[in-house]
């Protein structure tokens, strides 16, 4: 196989890996948006906290990785629930803009608290996975990317299947479709709101850990949350399938730009801006995204 083709394949595979992680983060946005029509700008900070929870469990009490992951997910579930109950619920019925500002404020508060609790230093997880890179035909994938990718895909599948096939999933989708009708059907929509926030915090925790494994942990880790926003807009704010497709598209585009264009740019990076180019383009031609509901356009 020619060197050029291998290079392309390598970029595509890294793109899919990046995309899987974007998709997982995007799912956190979508779950909350579907249920409550709130865009949670603190998603990245939920990731960061989840990553720190797991790091603390591993470094302070030498918990095995799987245990640390579960502890972080459980702690995040509680955090998500508390956030909904204490911060978002009192704002029910307020204007969208106020609610968005509140989530931005939350992000800053979480970041500040993390600085205090864990300092601004970079940390990394103790070695977790076998070091040998994974061979996929002609290309090599670092184990540091391969295993986190599997975790991301597993988490996506779990949430997706839960949404699709469980009774609670039916209640959540019903609430997303028509809150009033769902309420009248005996579904306690307040419980659904709380569940959605905790589910979003849980997926964010897994995403944070995955990102932390690949690139280290610091209070700045949440910046990737904003970078995922284009994915959500491309896929459609209220579509889980859209989060997946949008994640992979942007992950791949980003890596292609990084592989082919950036070397010609002498220090500048197209890779960094690709997601936002897609964001602007999507909003111009298809504001509700690839799979979103049309009425989302009104926002």
């Amino acid at each position: 196989m020619s060197e050029g083709l291998v290079h392309l394949l390598q970029l595509l595979v890294s793109g899919v890996v990046t995309g899987g992680i974007y998709a997982l983060v995007a799912m956190g946005f979508v779950v909350v948006y579907k249920a409550t029509r709130v865009i949670n700008f603190a998603t990245g900070e939920f990731m960061m906290l989840g990553a720190f929870f797991a790091w603390t469990a591993m470094s302070a009490v030498q918990a095995p990785f799987v245990v640390a992951l579960l502890v972080a997910v459980a702690a995040s579930a509680l955090l998500g629930m508390a956030t909904e109950r204490l911060v978002l619920r009192p704002l029910l019925g307020q204007r969208t803009i106020s609610v968005i500002m509140v989530t931005i404020g939350l992000a800053a508060i979480f970041k500040g608290l993390a600085q205090i609790a864990w300092s601004g230093d970079y940390r990394s997880y103790p070695a977790i996975f076998p070091r040998a890179p994974i061979e996929l035909g002609p290309i090599l994938l670092p184990s540091r990317q391969f295993y986190p990718f599997l975790i991301a895909v597993g988490a996506i599948a779990l949430v997706g299947l839960g949404f699709r096939f469980t009774r609670t999933g039916v209640a959540m989708r019903a609430t997303a479709d028509d809150q009033m009708a769902a309420f009248g059907m005996g579904i306690d929509i307040r419980r659904i709101f709380s569940l959605s926030w905790s589910l979003a915090a849980m997926t964010a925790a897994v995403a944070g850990i995955v990102v932390g494994i690949i690139g280290g942990i610091s209070p700045q880790l949440g910046a990737i949350g904003l970078r995922t926003f284009p994915v959500v807009i491309l896929g459609g704010l209220d579509s889980i399938g859209g989060a997946l497709v949008g994640g992979v598209i942007i992950g791949v585009l980003e890596n292609l730009a990084g592989g082919y264009v950036d070397p010609l740019l002498d220090g500048a990076s197209l890779k960094e801006v690709v997601p936002f180019v897609v964001l602007v383009f999507t909003l111009m031609v298809r504001p509700y995204g690839l799979f979103g509901t049309r009425e989302v356009e009104r926002l």
Partner: peptide, 25 residues
């Protein structure tokens, strides 16, 4: 139980899932 004006079917749920949603009552 109220059957609302305009039917208010959950559009993105299947017929069976619409019926399952009512089990919450």
């Amino acid at each position: 139980f109220q059957v609302m004006e305009g039917r208010r079917i959950f559009e993105h749920l299947t017929v069976e899932e619409n019926l399952e949603a009512a089990t919450y009552a």
